[in-house]
Design a protein around this nucleic acid. Sequence first.
DNA 1: AGCATTCAGTTGTTAAAGTCAACTATTTCA
DNA 2: TGAAATAGTTGACTTTAACAACTGAATGCT
Lengths: 308, 308
Amino acid sequence: MAEPADIAQVRTFNRFYTRIIGLLEEGMHQTLHTLSEARVIYELDKAGTTTSAMVAETLGMDRAQLSRLVGKLVSQDIVAVLPRAGDKRSVPLALTREGREVAKHFNAMSDAKAAETLLDPLTPFEQRDLVGAMRRISALLAEPEDATLVLRQPRVGEIGWLIHRQAVLYHLEQGWNGEFETLITRIYADFEAAPSAPSKQLWVAEIEGEVAGSVFVLPAEDGEEGTAQLRMLYVEPMFRGRGIGARLVAEAITFAKASGYKRIMLWTQDCLASARSIYQKAGFVLAKEERHHSFGADLNGQYWVLEL
Amino acid sequence: MAEPADIAQVRTFNRFYTRIIGLLEEGMHQTLHTLSEARVIYELDKAGTTTSAMVAETLGMDRAQLSRLVGKLVSQDIVAVLPRAGDKRSVPLALTREGREVAKHFNAMSDAKAAETLLDPLTPFEQRDLVGAMRRISALLAEPEDATLVLRQPRVGEIGWLIHRQAVLYHLEQGWNGEFETLITRIYADFEAAPSAPSKQLWVAEIEGEVAGSVFVLPAEDGEEGTAQLRMLYVEPMFRGRGIGARLVAEAITFAKASGYKRIMLWTQDCLASARSIYQKAGFVLAKEERHHSFGADLNGQYWVLEL
DNA sequence: AGCATTCAGTTGTTAAAGTCAACTATTTCA
DNA sequence: TGAAATAGTTGACTTTAACAACTGAATGCT
């Protein structure tokens, strides 16, 4: 079981946020509809056409209660019962034109309430923080859905973010100490300082607005002319198993080829198994191994090379 | 009003978390008490002795309803009505011994439920992420309470975190571009690389487990012998106005003196008004000003010095 | 093909929670 | 000192929640 301190923090947050949600809901009492009605209307508006069972599922509502509620909304001409199609047990539901008007009104009210209660009192920096934290919680707790992956240039703040994430991750997963963070801080600083020719490039993999991974390519420090080095391949644990690492490596290889490099090399540790398998699949060949003691651990450093 | 995209994200999160809370509450149906009863019992357990009004306030509950609920709990010998003291309108409430047993039982159940539903499915790294995000949301939205400030050495990951935070903050507040992040990445890398004598030190200010600010001292790059440089003074916007900056600077000055430095200097930009006032109050004197174009902005760089 | 099982939805019943207004006893504050 | 605010109670009523029982349709299994 998880750490007691973490559990306590989670429960404190749950109580806190229960209250926040309660406060937001208080603002909706001026309307003609009840809260559950509003929720159902919102769901129908979002889904277009659904069934009662679907709404009950997503809202965590009792089917019996929902049945009566829908009946009420139908009698108010807000929800229309469509002719049964396909599975004749279920009844497709949709909003009427009037229902869509009501939904629009609700949304406007909810937006205003959420904005004035939660966002407006904060500075833009804090707003960004808040939204970021919410997105993170959703990403951690929700079922992963296949969202689109984008590879792009880093935005302001993301170098620091990558240093932070990797330092913490390898600290927890591999037990590496602050030396590792010191090293990668220097590596990123050197990347930024490197001249723009011969070519270098850093990619950030983004999923749903979150940084999902990263890698960069630059001329190898002490290699022969025409050797590129792949460095700092990183995939967020949350987003692993979706081929992000492979995508990043493929993009880097393509770039290295297009930039006229003759080969591409990289340094890694053999304890990083998933990274190694990505390199192998991309065609890299193990060139050299070297034991060393770094980051507070005994490691087996590996040099991999791919002739382009 | 806030950004529509942010509002949408906040509302999505609210719906999502409403569902999460609902799921957690479902687990409590096996007990003899209802959910509201459990909540009231929890509050009384936490507070020791309170009044009905306080509980109603923190739980966002109707006073009428609470009155009846308390009556029920009293008749079940779970809550005791203490003799009125002081303000005779209000009635002090407390749990009986039996009530405390019930509370203990509830807490154990809630802990287990929260752990298995939210934390246990995650890796330790993700758990840390989740708890961090929750703490952040609470800190942003809750009323700031005076929590204790701790100055300590940085932990693994915090160098990257500081780079990230400052890069984003000054990007949003001052419009500085990626050049700034590049610069401070190097500055932190250089701090780590600097030899341990003459003395250097980095402090992180921590409030409630959150990084609230930071600063470091190291030998001045190009100064005369005996000159220390104060760098990267930073206070989280969320925690501003609590004297954290002054505490950090004071600590740094004390350290510089104790380490035998003769003077301490720093470089800053005049657009950073709150930092400047901290330096002035600490006794720093403006030594030189210099216009320059950096980070995509026209700046007025200032050198401040304090003779120790 | 036949039969048990599962699923979507409805209806009935009962308990709990939420809303509102009116009322008493104190306390506060101008 | 007197009006206004506060803490708590009580009554009346609505809405939500939780279960069980039931119908009709689809699914699975042998």
